[in-house]
């Protein structure tokens, strides 16, 4: 663009793109971020973009009706050119996204990056985790095979246990007594409409907040080195994206997602399980009295959401105790134990 054209253009669209680009690209990044484990925040974002792209491609063929859902998934997997790959990327992408969020949380938690003044961004993060799990849950239900149908059934059954609004919310989600045609269309709506939009908005807010606050420094430690977002960190992210694409493709080839048996609402299979990221909830509900299980899950959720404030209170009372190490380690170990246990006793 020469100057004349630039002028014409900016007259018509009076936005200073250069400045915006400068702000975005010149963000100073602290030197410790060169360690890969400290740079995992971008991973879920990269995966989200992958999910959007592969998700749009899947909707070209997917039909959200009980008669055709399973058939169309089968068609995508077995007939459509590279359909299995796109579906594999989408499925593995969703799994890796959950894992990536966990990893990002581990970094944030143990570096106490949520501490003042970034509490709000932690809460946004928790909301994004919940939204992502919602996307995983609704997405899995769309396959409409025996495993996913019954996983949806038990998954939504859990909702019923929420005090007061449980039954109402359950009916609202299912659109009837059991999982059926209404559930499928509702979940499809949620999966491709409401939830991705919510997540997108949350991601924007999250990044804006990160930028407004600046990337957090390690507690009490000033990095010697500061570097620019572009090009160093941007390339960092690009490498992560390519790495993920390779990993997901490899996983798709080695462990492709199957189609299983078509959903049969009249035949309850011997094993009914939700997806693995809900195993910890499933474990608690299965082995504890239902009310206690629900209470624990709700407490865990509240503690996780408001942890930055809760930790402040705890710190005032017991200033020497490193709460984040204790709580973080216990939470991770329990999560792993419950999840592994449920996987093994399948």
């Amino acid at each position: 663009m020469n100057q004349m054209q630039e002028k014409k253009f900016s007259e018509r669209l009076p936005i200073d793109f250069k400045k915006i680009a400068e702000v975005i690209l010149n963000e100073p990044i602290p030197g410790h971020m060169k360690n890969w484990f400290y740079a995992l925040g971008a991973t879920p974002l990269v995966l989200f973009i992958f999910q959007v792209v592969t998700g749009i491609l899947l909707t070209f063929y997917y039909v959200p009706s009980p008669d055709l859902a399973y058939q169309s998934v089968k068609y995508i997997t077995e007939e459509v050119r590279l359909g299995f790959w796109i579906r594999g990327l989408h499925r593995w992408g969703s799994n890796l996204m959950v894992i990536a969020i966990f990893l990002h949380m581990v970094r944030v938690f143990f570096t106490r990056a949520y501490r003042k003044p970034r509490e709000l961004n932690w809460i946004l993060g928790i909301l994004m985790l919940i939204t992502t799990l919602g996307l995983c849950f609704t997405g899995y239900s769309l396959i409409y095979n025996q495993l996913s149908y019954w996983a949806t059934t038990v998954g939504t059954n859990m909702i019923k246990e929420i005090p007061i609004f449980g039954s109402l919310f359950l009916r609202f989600l299912r659109g009837g007594e059991t999982v059926g045609v209404n559930t499928l269309t509702r979940f499809f709506d949620l999966h491709i409409g409401l939830l991705p939009t919510t997540l997108f908005v949350l991601i924007i807010l999250h990044i804006v907040l990160v930028r407004v606050h600046g990337v957090s420094r390690l507690e009490g430690y000033e990095d010697d080195e500061i570097y620019r977002f572009y090009p160093e960190h941007m390339y960092h992210v690009a490498v992560i994206a390519l790495f993920l694409l390779t990993v997901m493709s490899a996983l798709t080839v080695v462990l492709p997602p199957g189609v299983g048996e078509p959903a049969d609402p009249s035949t309850t299979p011997l094993h009914i399980k939700p997806e693995w990221y809900f195993y910890w909830i499933y474990f608690l509900l299965k082995y504890l009295p239902i009310k206690l299980g629900i209470a624990l899950i709700l407490v865990a959720l509240i503690v996780a959401t408001f942890w930055p404030f809760i930790e402040d209170i705890l710190k005032k009372k017991f200033p020497k105790v490193k709460w984040h190490y204790i709580v973080g380690s216990v939470a991770i170990v329990l999560l792993l134990i419950f999840t592994v246990y449920e996987t093994i006793i399948y």
Binding site: F37, L40, R91, W92, N95, L96, V98, I99, F102, L103, V106, R107, F110, N145, L147, L251, V254, L255, P256, P257, G258, V259, G260, E275, W276, G328, S329, I332, L336, T339, V340, T343, Y346
Partner: peptide
Amino acid sequence: FSILLTVVLIIIAGVEAKRT
């Protein structure tokens, strides 16, 4: 924890994918 979570959860996700 990152390595532990990555390895264990990917294995679990793999086992689940195999089941499908």
